[in-house]
Amino acid sequence: MDPIVISGLSYAYGEGELRRPVLRDVALTVHAGEVVLLTGPSGSGKTTLLTLIGALRAMQEGSCRVLGQELLGASERERVRLRRSIGFIFQNHNLLGFLTARQNVAMALELEAALPERERLARAGAMLAAVGLAGHEDKLPAQLSGGQRQRVAIARALVGGPGLVLADEPTAALDKASGAEVAHLLRDLAKSRGVPILMVTHDPRILDIADRVVAMEDGRIVEAEAA
């Protein structure tokens, strides 16, 4: 029912004496259509938690159920499949520099080869228009501003109709105005599609987009407040 259900999740880096726990007995649930912000000082484990939810890292202990898939003991193949149902937005846009904005967005659809090329490009174009980049479809990332690039990244994350969006400080590299703009755009698009968002952020300027703010410290969730 809930897109993310976590209980008793612990995670540690290193082995033996060098073993360094970063997550201790974390429990977190994100409800359908909810926008949850994860805050906390650096080193509190929030990014590690995000990579575990995103199936980018193998689980060690506890239970983490994402979009109905239990990740504890999931194979690499299952994790790759799950990632296709998740929209990722990174701190840096990470667009492919040699592809145009439209081609970059269409890359998220190329995994479904059943979709004809023309349909992929049309959907990518429509998604770019939805993030306000109509007319910029054929520009390379280098020809776009930072805010525009991050909007292309949002279009890429949403174009495949994901069941969940994971974002890591998507506004950190942007100035105040475009940061707020990008955050609201992401929130509005996700809300209109009913897609839940889990976003790690330090940025106090965008806390207003959240339904709920979860704070972490020393690998534990210390506080959850409704915004």
Binding site: G68, Q69, E78, P162, G194
Partner: peptide, 22 residues
Amino acid sequence: NVLARPRLLPRAPARTGEMAPA
């Protein structure tokens, strides 16, 4: 949970459709 899984479908039909037999 077993019963709940199909309810994800309306939210992301193209994606979660393939998740169903996971």
